[in-house]
């Protein structure tokens, strides 16, 4: 195996990994505000893709209009989910909220099945499938665009968490009681985190919808996103980006080696191994916060 091929595998792996980060960033946003891994992030991603599709294909809007409009709709939807499903669970055990997010995921899959059916549709972003040739290395254009989206969102959120609203969200993640005591609306903060995660889901849905078609299987992206988020540390946006790149590279390069022995399917095995090893060896991930213990 020559080094050019290896580099190509690594670069395309890193790009794919950044697309996993797109899903992981949504998970991190909600985890930061409510300390719950949002099991509905895959469902939200799928829904984001369907909303764009409904606006562009069914309602005939151009994509430059359909995508921002879908973002607005999903932003509102995020607030709605908090208001309807999660507010009454505030202060209840985390496992109940976790089950609720799973319920939302299943609900979203069922709803999209009922409305749009189960056949895969194409997003038609109009990005060429011709690979980009850089030297001797072939790079997928849509992956490059997706990686750009992931990095821009990362930069935007790094700035956001330094604003006053962002600081209040981080405060909510630290301590509900203290937040209430100084007049921070925990409910509105959690709602905002769901709204932002739903917004991110539109980006992820558009890119992934273009790559693998829009259907219910998009919701399975949760597993990749969750693995990336856990490795990154669940509450770190930077972690989600770096872990995405790491997992993407390991998966792409590793599968190339292993597939010759096991005859395919080693991608999933590698991702599973990363998840299991992370939880066993470094439960708070690469960049996750430790619970502070003063000595």
């Amino acid at each position: 195996m020559d080094w050019i091929f290896l580099t190509e595998l690594a670069i395309n792996g890193a790009l794919t990994g950044l697309l996993y980060s797109l899903v992981a960033i949504g998970l991190v946003l909600i985890y930061k505000a409510s300390s719950v891994p949002n099991l509905a992030q895959g469902g939200l991603t799928m829904l984001g893709a369907y909303v764009v599709l409904a606006l562009s294909r069914d309602a005939g809007m151009p994509l430059w209009l359909a995508i921002p409009l879908a973002a607005v709709i999903m932003f509102g939807m995020g607030f709605g989910i908090e208001r309807v499903a999660l507010r009454r669970l505030a202060g209840r055990p985390v496992v109940m909220i976790l089950m609720m997010t799973l319920g939302i995921d299943i609900f979203l899959i069922g709803t999209t099945l009922a409305i749009w059916g189960g056949t895969s549709s194409s997003m038609n972003l109009g990005i060429s499938y011709e690979p980009l040739l850089m030297g001797d290395i072939f790079i997928s254009r849509i992956h490059l665009v997706g990686a750009g989206v992931a990095l821009s969102l990362f930069a935007a959120f790094m700035l956001f968490f330094r604003t006053r609203t962002g600081i209040k969200l981080r405060a909510i993640a630290d301590d509900y009681m203290a937040s209430w005591s100084v007049g921070i609306s925990v409910e509105r903060g959690v709602g905002l985190s769901w709204a932002l995660a739903s917004l991110v889901a539109v980006g992820a849905g558009v890119i992934w919808g273009e790559i693998q078609g829009v259907d219910q299987s998009l919701s399975i992206l949760l597993l990749k996103g969750l693995t990336v988020a856990v490795l990154g540390g669940l509450d770190s946006i930077l972690g989600a980006v770096i872990a995405g790149v790491i997992i993407g590279i390991i998966e792409n390069v590793g599968a190339e080696f292993l597939d010759q022995f096991v005859g395919g399917g080693s991608r999933e095995l590698i991702v599973a191994a990363v998840l299991i090893l992370t939880v066993m060896i470094r439960p708070h991930g690469l960049f996750g916060r430790h619970d502070i213990e003063r000595v």
Partner: peptide
């Protein structure tokens, strides 16, 4: 019990 925002 001094509920400060520990990570801030």
């Amino acid at each position: 019990g001094r509920h400060v925002f520990e990570h801030l």
